[in-house]
Design a protein around this nucleic acid. Structure first.
Lengths: 194, 194
DNA sequence: TGAGCATGTTCGTCAAGGCGAACAAGAGGA
DNA sequence: TCCTCTTGTTCGCCTTGACGAACATGCTCA
């Protein structure tokens, strides 16, 4: 019922093996290391590494992990894809996230991989009853920097009052609130899907 | 410089297989699915899944990927560990990044993994000659949301003038500038190390 | 020129991953 | 009570990943 999401798992681009192959070669190049040297550090056969970089083969987790360590790369990067370019979104433009309340507007500024990692929102809120958000996906962390106004933000049972320039991070997979205390309260939120 | 990989392996907790085993079981439970059902969706043998959840075995990437799809999980979560907590940094507090210029102050708000992924800064700049930044590591992307004031921001050869609420993203591995046009210009920057 | 040492590739061999069937253990239903 | 349909585990078999040696190539130095 989660619906056969072939779209679901695709945190990265498409076929993971190709992505990994490209990542492996890219990261190795970036580190300025030889195939032999990386294989030695990772404790795997260079033949194996060669095949992996050529897209052949289907590495085991241990193998991939060892390579991540050898390349000094967080492992997740090996399966996540490349990079964007310049982009500007003017205030008021951009996709506004639908809300049941007119006094709460969230604009999606950047959603790196469409459904994973980390989104950046611009949030504008008017004073009123606290906006309570149900927990999101497990592993979500929300970072908020208050740009103007004042607000009480954080986990539902213990929100924190913030002034302009203040920053807070809290787990997004627990109930949390955003309550504006002044008109025209604006904040930048980074929602991190891990 | 690339070296010193002691930080490397710690992308996740420790032994990846145990983490994966725990993640698989956790995510499956969370989804309320039976082992048989998940195996069927992922197109793998339930025996395989059983062994994986018990910590035995060393799955291939394809297997793990299929499970990520079946469980509707970004894949990276299967190998990344638990969770942080609430953190607040008041305006003016927090580690200010050293600068050769007194009229440019960057405060580090969050550096998730110390040397990878993404940092969040609060930046305060006074008008003056454009601050030119040399290229950072390849793959860096900088996201900036202007909180107050006005500024010209972007790649060196083509900066963009921003007003409060405006957003821009640009490659950080090219020369880029930040020029405040009004006193007390404040911005939030997300520097993404890929 | 050729020896020496790098690089990255391909080729057999072996162990391990993944499969399907058979297996215990519960939970209803007739 | 027995039957049946679940659940998750354990057991041979076979495919396949990983290994190490041998193989091409390119570079440096004598």
């Amino acid at each position: 019922m989660t619906g056969d999401g072939q779209e679901a798992g695709r945190a990265a681009g498409g076929a993971p093996l190709e992505v990994i192959a490209a990542s492996l070669r890219r990261e190795r190049r970036r580190a300025g290391l030889s195939l032999t040297e990386v294989a030695r550090r990772a404790g795997i056969a260079k033949s194996t590494l060669s095949q992996l970089e050529s897209g052949t083969g289907n590495p085991s987790v241990e193998t991939l992990w060892a390579l991540g360590v050898a390349l000094d790369v967080p492992f997740a990067r090996l399966v996540d894809p490349p990079r964007p370019r310049v982009q500007v979104i003017r205030a008021g433009e951009g996709p506004a996230v639908a809300s049941e309340r007119a006094d709460y507007v969230a604009t999606l500024l950047a959603s790196c991989p469409p459904n994973a990692r980390r989104d950046i929102y611009l949030i504008t809120v008017q004073p009123g009853p606290p906006r309570e958000s149900d927990p999101h996906m497990p592993g979500v962390v929300e970072h908020v920097v208050l740009a103007s106004g004042r607000a009480r933000i954080g986990v539902a049972e213990d929100p924190v009052e913030l002034s302009p320039g203040d920053y807070i991070a809290y787990p997004g997979d627990e109930p949390h609130v955003f309550e504006a205390l002044e008109p025209g309260t604006v904040a930048v939120m980074v929602s991190e899907h891990v």
